[in-house]
Design a protein around this nucleic acid. Structure first.
Lengths: 209, 209
DNA sequence: CCAATATATGAAGGATCCTTCGCTTTGAGG
DNA sequence: CCTCAAAGCGAAGGATCCTTCATATATTGG
């Protein structure tokens, strides 16, 4: 669970029968599809329902309103990404700093690139959505994971690990997003990813005790 | 001029009399105000006009539709920010790399922090706006300015300046945005800014010939 | 002072869109 | 098989909102 949603964004009820689960999945998937093909301002309850092959009324049995739909979507997505980072961090306990940085950047980048269109759509869907808590919970999960990882590095210790770690994450998250928002040629994108890794590495080099 | 707007976003006509200029400014200012106080999804032509103290019809004499309003706003803003960066870069020609990095980060950070609420509002207003060209033009202006600056550094030359520069900008822009979207305590924010500067510096150190 | 032009007005047409609720259909347990 | 709860349906109410256009006022150049 990424965070307890603000009351007004909580799902209305959970599915109890198999078909209900199917419906719910269909609705969420349809939301992504519509977001992708039509854009946020044409994301309509009717359109989503239509695309999901259900009626509007059905949708309203699971979500109190449109916003809740987007909230749920973001929640799912962030949960997956955070999970991937956590897994990667666990696997790297005790490794060397270069390995860690390399893996961290690669994992996050990969998670965002995997379905580039979805990532973009979600970045945008989050606007005007009361999801600060969601973002915050995500940040803290990742922060905890990477802090633990870097703390276990076999080749270095850091004086102010908390700050170093926070900086690292802000830079990585931010850079990835920036690269995404502009539509850079694939080659340049890859190059920047490599440079980012280098950059993080020499930063850690400088920051170690 | 930051970019030639897509046809459908071009202002409808330019003011020719003094009062028209006043009106137009009032409309744009009102747009920011409404964006701040009401949010993007409550940004209404009527509301903007009301706040600007003019009628809706007046607004439509200068802008073909709501989107064009937001486009113009972003254009103005990016123009100002780009200008600040350009000025700073010119002043630093021939300086040392550390001075340059320090100034670049400080200038950009400052430009975004000056009116933090406006910055945030504009970040959000840009969603669902066909402003890729705008962003691109902004990026290229800044890119040209910083490339020229770093090219003139008194203490270092770079092998692949283009790539190094692109990376630097992606990282700085991205990090600033990331820090902004989360609402970090002021102290941490400042700390991260300092760390970011350090990071950029040691990156340049590594990247130089 | 007088056209001619530039600005400003705001009611109303037309288009969506969100959400509800009374009713139907389906599934599960006994 | 039967009954009750779960799931699904979709027309329609109610609320905005965007944009236009016929009309009115202000400004400027001559």
């Amino acid at each position: 669970m990424t965070a307890t949603p603000p009351l007004h964004l909580k799902p209305r009820k959970r599915p109890r029968q198999a078909r209900a689960t199917v419906t719910l999945d269909a609705i969420l998937e349809a939301t992504i599809q519509v977001l992708l093909s039509e854009g946020l301002h044409r994301l309509t309850t009717t359109r989503v329902a239509e695309r999901a092959g259900v009626s509007v009324g059905t949708m309203y049995q699971y979500f109190p309103h449109k916003q809740a739909l987007l909230y749920a979507l973001n929640e799912r997505y962030l949960d997956i990404v955070a999970g991937k980072v956590e897994t990667a961090c666990l696997e790297l306990r005790g490794a060397s700093t270069p390995e860690m940085v390399e893996a961290l950047v690669a994992t996050y980048w990969q998670a965002k690139t995997e379905r580039r269109d979805v990532t973009r759509a979600l970045y945008r869907s989050a606007v005007e959505l009361d999801n600060e808590a969601l973002i915050e919970a995500f940040a803290q999960r990742v922060d905890a994971a990477t802090t633990a990882m870097f703390g276990s590095a076999s080749d270095a210790t850091y004086d102010d690990l908390a700050l170093v770690n926070a900086t690292l994450l802000a830079v990585i998250f931010g850079t990835v997003r920036n690269v995404f928002e502009r539509n850079l040629p694939a080659g340049l994108e890859t190059d920047i990813r490599k440079q980012l890794t280098i950059m993080c590495l020499c930063y850690l080099e400088t920051a170690r005790v």
